[in-house]
């Protein structure tokens, strides 16, 4: 799978799986309407890993929730696999900042949660759950409760849970931002590995520039007020990816370009003035 991905030249766009067309989202705020997203247009190809990068409050999480069908856009439309997104749908896997596991259930049972909700055949998926847990290195932890697992392990369980019903796309909302830096690096490596193994399409929301650059095929920078897509950049690094690409001049040049783009859009160092306002929006 990974070898195949490697051979697809980035110049030829893979078949489009998600088509986001002029999506706008305006909330009714206390001091009048707040425009969280102003006219975002974006395409994500099948098997592509696309990061939405930007400071807190740039509307990237809102856009992700709209793609998930959990929020309705004020205007614009989203096509997923050819059909419009009008509400929550079963072919999506979501991962949040917190693992949000059921504390009274074992790791295995948490992975099987979507199977129970979607009333899929348990017997068949139990095997798949074991395979997924093995893939993320959690063999032997199947019967542990979330309280017995570390933060990184819990997030791995959440990834398995998002993959169990074989969704066509994985939506990740700052999944590693609650983890410490070392665990976060490990999770990035693990995620890169998982995605190369499964070949899933991923939309990944983050405010970490290096994380986005390391993981993605394309990084989409959102920013400005009101927020829109200000840069769409392909990451030219070969897969499978290793951490040593982070030491290369090209990687650092790309990170620098991404950082400057964000700073430019916000008139100063990234995340300075926007962070405080951000919370009231989200």
């Amino acid at each position: 799978m990974s070898a195949q991905l490697l051979e697809v030249p980035r110049l030829v766009r893979p078949e489009s799986l998600v088509r986001i067309q002029q999506v706008e989202k305006t909330y009714a705020g206390r001091q009048g309407p707040v425009r969280a997203v102003a006219s975002a247009s974006l395409e994500v190809g099948r098997g592509e890993f696309v990061s939405l990068l930007g400071p807190s409050g740039c509307g990237k999480s809102t856009l992700l929730m709209i793609i998930a069908g959990l929020e309705t856009p004020t205007s614009g439309s989203i096509l997923l696999d050819g059909s419009p997104v009008t509400g929550p749908r079963r072919d999506i896997g979501i991962i949040f900042q917190d693992a949000t596991l059921l504390p009274w259930k074992s790791a295995l049972e948490n992975v099987l949660f979507p199977v129970r909700i979607l009333r899929l055949p348990l017997r068949k998926y139990r095997e798949r759950a074991h395979e997924l847990l093995a893939m993320v290195g959690l063999t032997g932890f199947e019967n542990k409760k979330p309280s017995e697992l570390s933060g990184g392990m819990r997030q791995r369980v959440a990834i398995c849970r998002a993959l169990i019903h074989d969704p066509s796309i994985l939506l990740m909302d700052e999944p590693f931002s609650a983890l410490d830096a070392i665990t976060r690096d490990q999770m990035n490596a693990a995620l890169a590995d998982i995605m190369e193994k499964t070949g899933k399409t991923v939309i990944f929301v983050t405010h970490s520039i290096r994380e986005a650059a390391f993981l993605s095929d394309r990084v989409v920078v959102m920013g400005g007020r009101p927020s829109q897509v200000i840069l769409d950049l392909a990451m030219p690094f070969p897969r499978p990816r290793r951490f040593d690409i982070e030491d290369g001049a090209e990687f650092n040049a790309i990170c620098r370009r991404l950082r400057l783009t964000i700073e430019e859009a916000h008139g100063g160092p990234a995340q300075s003035g926007t962070a405080a306002r951000a919370n009231s929006v989200e």
Binding site: L70, G87, P88, R89, F96, D98, T100, L102, L118
Partner: peptide, 29 residues
């Protein structure tokens, strides 16, 4: 029950009854 958990349920198109029996009630026990 936290908001993300409810969002997860919604994204899985869980019915109100499923949310109650699988999440809310056991969480409240």
């Amino acid at each position: 029950v936290d908001r993300s958990m409810l969002r997860l349920c919604r994204s899985l198109t869980a019915s109100e009854w499923q949310v109650f029996t699988h999440v809310r009630f056991p969480a409240a026990l």
